[in-house]
């Protein structure tokens, strides 16, 4: 725990929760179901450090990114930006927008097709108070920071004239040009060609090391999380199920879900016949009671079906939200791990 405090915490989330009400198909009038898209998630984003959030579709990882960027309002929980708590219901200020930036998944979709690249880069600068002449110079600097040289070659192009890798770099440049402290990247490489993915990952690594950015890297690809991140969080059904500093989580996973995830990664040394077989799953339905992974879990116990496990400390800076480790001490929230339900009531509003 000592090393976690060394880097400065730029953005902290405490017990962040977001529920959505959805209509249950077939019940037009009454039945609305509450989907706990993000449920009691706490994390620390520190300067010069990449935190990876790994999860499948439906794990709530994209909602988490939008909560952190404050383009979605949390149902409960709070955000602390450089030590200052931010009221959940307050309007998102321009200052917050310039401190915390989000890069979206689809590089082709996130550029307006009718505008040239300079519009995409200069608008944020203009909004955040730069003059017209300044903006162009700053936009060029931003393009250089993402290794697009010479910048003039890109500024007057239209998005459709550029490749996916270039557009994703421009997306990152757009986020960078307002000088954020925190960069949230929502699956930045999943839509890119295999051969250019590493380039974007290495770019993020460089920004983190050279400019002391705090980066949240959201992905479904656990191998890339292992490659890039100092901290890895695995999410399942809106909750953090496992967390570790370093690559411990990948090298020695403790939570059955993480184990399943890792066993599923295509790996030539792990033939298909050894594939875990969990049968038909509808990922949108999770257990309402107890551990949410219990219906799919191979090591399920009775307690899992009735009581939700807290996060247990399974190693140094390594926690696992699973009853298998109930003999271990419970982890505290300072480790960016949610406490047991109810205990966090004092910090939530």
């Amino acid at each position: 725990m000592s090393d976690t405090g060394s880097a400065m915490s730029e953005l902290q989330a405490r017990h962040l929760t977001r529920h959505f009400k959805i209509r249950v198909p077939g019940h037009v009038l009454s039945a609305k179901r509450i989907v706990r898209a993000v449920d009691d998630v706490s994390l620390d984003l520190r300067a010069g450090q990449v935190t990876a959030v790994v999860g499948e579709s439906g794990s709530g990882k994209s909602v988490l990114a939008r909560l952190l960027a404050r383009i979605l309002t949390p149902t409960a929980g709070e955000l602390i930006l450089r030590g200052t708590p931010i009221a959940a219901k307050a309007r998102r200020s321009l200052a917050y927008a310039s401190d915390v930036q989000l890069v979206l998944q689809d590089p082709f979709g996130s550029m307006n097709p009718v505008h040239q690249i300079h519009h995409n880069l200069i608008r944020p600068l203009r909004i955040h108070g730069a003059s017209k002449d300044e903006s162009r110079a700053l936009a060029e600097t931003a393009l250089r920071r993402v290794s697009l040289e010479p910048p003039e070659r890109f500024l007057d192009r239209f998005p459709h004239e550029l490749s996916g890798g270039q557009l994703q770099r421009i997306s990152i440049a757009r986020a960078l040009c307002v000088q954020p402290k925190v960069l949230l990247a929502d699956e930045p490489i999943s839509m890119l060609d295999v051969s250019v993915r590493l380039g974007v990952l290495n770019l993020l690594r460089g920004l983190c090391d050279d400019e002391q950015l705090a980066i949240l890297y959201i992905t479904h690809d656990i191998a890339s999380a292992r490659y890039l991140a100092e901290e890895i969080i695995v999410m399942y059904a809106g909750q953090v199920v496992e967390y570790s500093r370093g690559t411990t989580l990948v090298d020695a996973p403790t939570h059955p879900y993480t184990q399943l995830l890792i066993a599923s990664v295509p790996d030539p040394s792990n033939p298909l016949s050894m594939a875990p077989h969990v049968g038909e799953q509808n990922l949108t339905t999770f257990a309402e009671q107890g551990c949410r992974f219990s219906p799919r879990c191979a090591q399920v116990m009775d307690i899992c079906r009735t009581e939700e496990p807290p996060a247990f400390l399974v190693g140094e800076s390594h926690t696992s939200k699973c009853w298998l480790y109930r003999d271990r001490p419970e982890a505290s929230v300072e480790l960016a791990i949610p406490k047991r339900r109810g205990e966090g009531a004092t910090t939530t509003k």
Partner: peptide, 10 residues
């Protein structure tokens, strides 16, 4: 998702 992918490939 990877888990589903794995199952289907298997």
């Amino acid at each position: 998702d990877v888990v589903t992918q794995r199952e289907i490939l298997g």
